[in-house]
Amino acid sequence: MILSADSGSTYENLLTQTPPFLPEGAHFMVGVVTVPPGDPGSGPHRHTGPVFGYVLEGEILFELEGEEPYPIKAGEAFWEPGGEVVHYQAGNLREDIASRFVVCMACAPDVPMLTFLEPEEIRERDHLRHPSARQF
């Protein structure tokens, strides 16, 4: 799609998603996450609101609670609903380079944008993971 008759700028839609909710009084954060070569990424965690992302470089293994883990390559977009849904992994599938992705997060006020699960909760919720990703 051309954005203006006076410009050669174009727009390409990468992802359309209606989030299930936005936290009351939400603010938005945009950041870049860099995952070192072969690194498993952050541990299981939650976000207070929806997260949208775009992989800039490399390839990550992405897993949300209940979904089969899948690779996302540079140039591809992703999203997660936030709230009670656990984000299990966004590990770097590349051993030779860092993977980098941009995230835009809707965050509840006065709450950390990311909350890690304790080991006990990870075990208790294991049955909610896709069968291919269960650990217990």
Rank of each mutant, 00 (worst) to 15 (best):
I2A: 09
L3N: 12
L3D: 03
A5T: 14
D6Q: 13
D6Y: 02
S7F: 07
T10C: 12
Y11Q: 14
Y11H: 14
E12H: 13
E12W: 06
N13A: 11
L14E: 10
L14Q: 15
T16S: 15
Q17R: 13
T18E: 15
P20W: 11
F21E: 09
F21Q: 10
L22D: 03
L22F: 08
E24R: 14
E24L: 09
G25S: 11
G25Q: 12
A26L: 07
F28E: 15
F28V: 14
F28T: 12
M29Q: 14
M29H: 09
V30K: 08
G31I: 09
V32P: 00
V33M: 08
V33G: 00
T34N: 06
T34M: 09
V35M: 06
V35Q: 02
V35F: 02
P36R: 04
P36K: 06
P37E: 12
G38N: 02
D39V: 00
D39P: 03
D39S: 10
P40Q: 06
G41M: 04
S42M: 13
G43N: 05
H45P: 00
H45R: 05
R46S: 08
G49W: 00
G49D: 02
P50R: 00
P50W: 07
V51W: 00
Y54V: 04
V55R: 07
V55Q: 05
E57F: 07
E57A: 10
G58S: 06
G58C: 11
G58K: 04
E59I: 08
I60N: 08
F62G: 00
F62E: 04
E63F: 04
L64C: 01
E65K: 05
G66R: 03
E67H: 14
E67A: 11
E68Q: 15
P69L: 04
P69F: 00
P69A: 14
Y70R: 15
Y70C: 04
Y70E: 07
P71V: 02
P71C: 07
P71Y: 04
P71R: 02
K73V: 03
K73C: 05
G75R: 12
A77S: 15
F78C: 06
F78R: 03
W79R: 05
W79V: 03
E84Q: 13
E84T: 13
H87N: 04
H87V: 04
Q89N: 06
A90C: 05
N92I: 02
N92T: 07
R94W: 00
R94Q: 14
D96E: 14
D96S: 15
I97F: 01
A98G: 08
A98V: 00
S99K: 07
F101P: 05
F101W: 06
F101G: 05
V102Q: 07
V102H: 05
V103E: 02
C104A: 13
A106Q: 05
A108F: 14
A108M: 10
P109C: 09
D110C: 04
D110A: 14
V111Y: 03
V111G: 01
P112Q: 11
F116N: 09
L117C: 11
P119A: 11
E120F: 08
E121Y: 11
E121P: 01
I122V: 15
I122Q: 13
R125H: 04
R125Y: 08
H127N: 07
L128A: 10
R129N: 15
S132N: 13
S132P: 03
S132C: 11
A133W: 05
Q135I: 08
Q135W: 13
F136Y: 15
F136T: 00
